[in-house]
Design a protein around this nucleic acid. Structure first.
Lengths: 298, 298
DNA sequence: GATCCTTATACTCAAAGTGAGTATATAAAA
DNA sequence: TTTTATATACTCACTTTGAGTATAAGGATC
C-alpha cells in the first residue's frame, strides 16, 4: 500500500453539560468556536489526544467521549489537505470560572428552533416562508421540508437536528451558507453562528445525543451523583428540546433497573422527593439495548 | 491554530452484499484483507475518495456509504503517524467474476459465533470455557461475558458483535490477540482472521448494520429491485444472524408504508408470492425513525 | 385427477406496553 | 390554617407484540 501524501489532522470537540435544565456546550473565543487543535504525536490514541488537549486548554475534565465524524477539507489551502476528527464528550459542568475567552454556551443559542419546550414562532414565521420560497415548483423539496420541520401534520423527530440544519443550509437560510456562496431564499433564521463548519458539527452532536438517549442510558454522565426523578426528566427534556409526560416518564424509568434509591430526600419548595443514583452496574456496562425485531423461537 | 505534524491517512472499506441468504464482504488478497488505500488529493470528499478507490480497484459500484470510525495507529513506524478512516458500504452483489485475488467472503467465516440461524456449539464448547478461565476469581468479567454471549439466561443482543469480538480479544481467545502480545486463556475460537485490525473493523460494521436495521430501512440497498416478503425476511435474518417469526415479520412490514405491490408474482416451489418493491419515497428520504420517549401534549 | 409437498396469506388471542389523565400525600410559605 | 408546589399512586382505554392456527394456491408425484 502506498503511503499517499502527508496531510494535517485536527481534533474538534463538542463538550456538553446540562445545568439548570439547559444544555451547554464548551466554546472558545467568547462563544464563537468549538475547542479544536492539532493531533500531536505522543498520544496513545485519538481519544487520549483529545482528552489531553481539552483538559490542557480549558481546564475541564472530560467524562464519556465518543467519536462523531471525520471529514476532509477539500484542499482549502495549497499547504496541503487537512482532515478534522470530531468528538462528542459529556461533562459535569462545574461552576468554576473558566479562564480567558473559554465559556459554556446554551446550545439553543445556535439552534433556537430546536427547543420546543418554549413557545416560539421561528418555524412558522421565518423557516416556513423561507423553505416555501426555496421549494417553489419543487414538490420533493416541499415534502422534505415538511417532514423535517413537522409542517403539515408531520410529527417532529427531535433526533433529526442535523438534517434540519443541512436543509436550512441548502436553502441558504443560515448565514454560513451565503458565506460559502449559496443564494439566500429569505430572511436568515435566527441563531448564532460559529467559526468554519462548527455549527454543523454541533448539529451532528445534538442529533447523535438525542438519538442515543432513547435507547441507551447516556445521561448519567451529565447528572450529579444524586438526583430526583424530576431532575432526570428535566435533563432529558433539555437535551431533546421536548417536554415529557411526568407520570409516564416515571413509570418508564422505574420499570427499568437503572436507578437505585439513595435513601436521601431533596429539599426545596414542595414535597421532598427521593434522591436516586445510577446503579453501579449500569455505570460499568453502558448497556446497549437490543433492537426490536420479531424473533422466532428456536 | 498550529498545524501539527503531517501524517498519512488511509481509507478502509467494508463493502457488504447479501446473496443466497448469506451476508458477504468484499476482500482482497484471497479473503485476507479489506480493501484499503491511501487518501489521495483531488478527491472532493472522503466518500468520493473511497468510492473512487474501491471502484477502480475492484470494479464494483458502491451504493449507500456511511462512515464507521476513524482511528490512529499509535506511531507504528518512525515514518510518521497514520490514521485510518473506515467506511461501511452496501452493494448489490452482482455475480460477475472479480479480477485477481478480489473476492466476496461470507462474513460468518470470520465470526462463526455470530450466526445463530444454524445450530453450532462454538459458544458452549469453546467460548464459555475460555471466558470462564479468563474470568476466574473476577465476577465482573464473568457477568460481562455472560451478558454479551447470552450465557446464564441473558438474552443475545445481535448488535453487540463488536463488544463480543473485543471481549474475545481481551481474553486472548482470537489469534490476533496473541499476535499483539496478549496471553491466551484457552483454545482459539474458530474463525478466520484478517490483516492488521481488519477483523475488528468488520465487527464494527456488523454491529452498526445490525443496529440500524431495527429502526431504519437500510436493507433496500442490498435487495434486488423486486422481491417477496420472504426474500426480505431472509436478507434481514442473514444480517442479524437470527431467525424471525414469519407472520409477525409480515405484519410489521405491512404496517409500515415501506413497500408497494409490483403486480408481479414469484414462481418456484410453492404458492407464488407477491413481488414487492420499495416505495420511491422511502428510497429518496431514508427516513430515520424517531426515538421512543413519553412525550407530553403541548 | 387425487394426493402430497411447499410456500403464501389470513386470522385469533392473550400479554405487555403506552398515552393520557385523576387522586392523594407531604413539605414549605403566606 | 390555608395556599402553593411538588411527589407519588393508580386507572383506563388503546396499541403493539409474541405466539400460534387455519386456509389458499402453486408444482410434483402417483
Amino acid at each position: 500500500m502506498t503511503p499517499g501524501e502527508p496531510i494535517h489532522a485536527e481534533l474538534i470537540a463538542v463538550v456538553v453539560a446540562v445545568t439548570d435544565a439547559q444544555p451547554r456546550v464548551l466554546t472558545l473565543l467568547d462563544g464563537s468556536a468549538l475547542p479544536a487543535g492539532p493531533l500531536e504525536s505522543g498520544h496513545r490514541s485519538l481519544q487520549a489526544g483529545l482528552r489531553h488537549w481539552v483538559e490542557r486548554h480549558t481546564g475541564h475534565r472530560l467524562g464519556h467521549i465518543e467519536q462523531l465524524y471525520t471529514f476532509a477539507d477539500p484542499d482549502r489551502s495549497r499547504a496541503g489537505r487537512s482532515i478534522s476528527i470530531c468528538y462528542l464528550a459529556l461533562a459535569n459542568e462545574t461552576r468554576t470560572p473558566l479562564g480567558g475567552r473559554v465559556s459554556w454556551q446554551d446550545w439553543y443559542r445556535f439552534f433556537p428552533w430546536e427547543d420546543r419546550r418554549v413557545a416560539h414562532t421561528i418555524i412558522e414565521t421565518i423557516v416556513k416562508p423561507g423553505l416555501s420560497h426555496w421549494s417553489a415548483g419543487n414538490p420533493e423539496r416541499l415534502t422534505r421540508a415538511a417532514r423535517l420541520f413537522g409542517l403539515d401534520g408531520e410529527d417532529w423527530q427531535e433526533d433529526r437536528a442535523l438534517a434540519r440544519y443541512e436543509l436550512l443550509y441548502e436553502a441558504g437560510l443560515v448565514r454560513e451558507a451565503t458565506r460559502d456562496g449559496r443564494p439566500a431564499h429569505g430572511e436568515f433564521v435566527p441563531g448564532a453562528t460559529l467559526a468554519a463548519d462548527h455549527r454543523r458539527i454541533l448539529a451532528t452532536a445534538i442529533s447523535r445525543l438525542r438519538a442515543r438517549i432513547g435507547y441507551r442510558p447516556v445521561v448519567f454522565e451529565l447528572m450529579a451523583e444524586q438526583f430526583t426523578l424530576l431532575d432526570l426528566q428535566r435533563c432529558i427534556e433539555a437535551l431533546t428540546g421536548q417536554t415529557l409526560h411526568k407520570a409516564n416518564f416515571r413509570r418508564l424509568i422505574e420499570s427499568q433497573t437503572l436507578l437505585e434509591d439513595s435513601g436521601n430526600f431533596s429539599s426545596g419548595s414542595g414535597r421532598p422527593a427521593k434522591l436516586y443514583r445510577f446503579r453501579a452496574e449500569v455505570l460499568a456496562e453502558r448497556a446497549e439495548a437490543g433492537t426490536r425485531l420479531p424473533l422466532a423461537r428456536p
